[in-house]
């Protein structure tokens, strides 16, 4: 579904990604792990068309999207739920969700709105409230709900557990598994290594702009390098 090959990218003249290969298949949860500054967000934002790559190929659904604009990437069904939520603070929860179907999924807007409210009843109780007044956890739900409104074929979740309480983090991972169970392909970008590996099918570890490790999530969870780097064992 998503095939990234030899991707080089960065900001200005600074190269952050130095040849990344990554594949997400249909129906998979793929975890992209790595510490702060490893280049995870650069990868995301380049794939989503916010930055132009320096080189390499990005194929989505059989189409080359390496130089496409963000709106045509959304149109194709690749939707990112960004780190830091990026909800529209001055708009109501309902307007935020409706704008999720600005470019894609507009005909089924009403139906999808009901579906998202079914997944996040909390949002249904606050439809008229300005998004900026929601709690961090609610804003995260809203950001994911807004992403779902665009009927994604592949959803990229960037640090969805960041800033959430442990209970909410549990709920978040359960939700990701459930969305995947309904057939959604997911690229999960996380620092939360063990919980991500527990729900992912496969995983990649990004270090200094390159893929350091990759494989089935169950194998990686046992990998000595990973346990040493992230768990201090």
């Amino acid at each position: 579904m998503l095939e990234i090959a030899g991707l080089r990218a960065g900001y200005g003249t600074v190269e952050i990604l130095r040849g990344v290969d990554l594949v997400v298949g249909k129906g998979e949860i793929v975890a992209l792990l790595g510490s702060n500054g490893a280049g995870k967000s650069t990868l995301n934002n380049t794939v989503c068309g916010l930055y132009r790559p320096f080189g390499g190929a990005v194929q989505f659904d059989g189409r080359n999207i390496a130089d496409a604009a963000s709106m045509s990437i959304v149109q194709a069904g690749l939707i990112q739920v960004p780190e830091g939520r990026r909800v529209f603070p001055n708009l109501s929860v309902r307007d935020n969700l409706e704008l999720g179907s600005y470019r894609r999924g507009k005909p089924a807007r009403r139906h999808n709105l009901d579906r998202v409210i079914g997944i996040f009843p909390r949002l249904g109780e606050r439809l008229q409230q300005a998004a900026g007044t929601l709690s961090g956890g609610e804003q995260q739900m809203l950001a994911i709900g807004r992403g779902l409104m665009g009927e994604p074929k592949l959803l990229i979740l960037d640090e969805p557990s960041l800033g959430l309480s442990p209970v909410l983090v549990e709920e978040m991972f359960a939700l990701i598994r459930r969305l995947n169970g309904d057939g959604l392909s997911i690229l999960l970008v996380e620092q939360n290594v063990m919980q991500s590996l527990a729900i992912a099918h496969r995983a990649y570890v990004l270090e200094n702009g390159q893929i350091a490790l990759s494989g089935p999530a169950a194998d990686l969870a046992q990998h000595p390098d990973l346990r040493r780097s992230y768990l201090g064992q």
């Binding site: 989503c48 068309g49 916010l50 963000s70 709106m71 990437i73 959304v74 149109q75 939707i79 990112q80 960004p82 939520r85 990026r86 909800v87 529209f88 603070p89 001055n90 704008l99 999720g100 600005y102 470019r103 894609r104 807004r146 665009g150």
Partner: peptide, 11 residues
């Protein structure tokens, strides 16, 4: 208020 969020919904 949120240009990057706007780009990510395809505006």
């Amino acid at each position: 208020r949120e240009r990057q969020g706007a780009r990510l919904v395809g505006i």
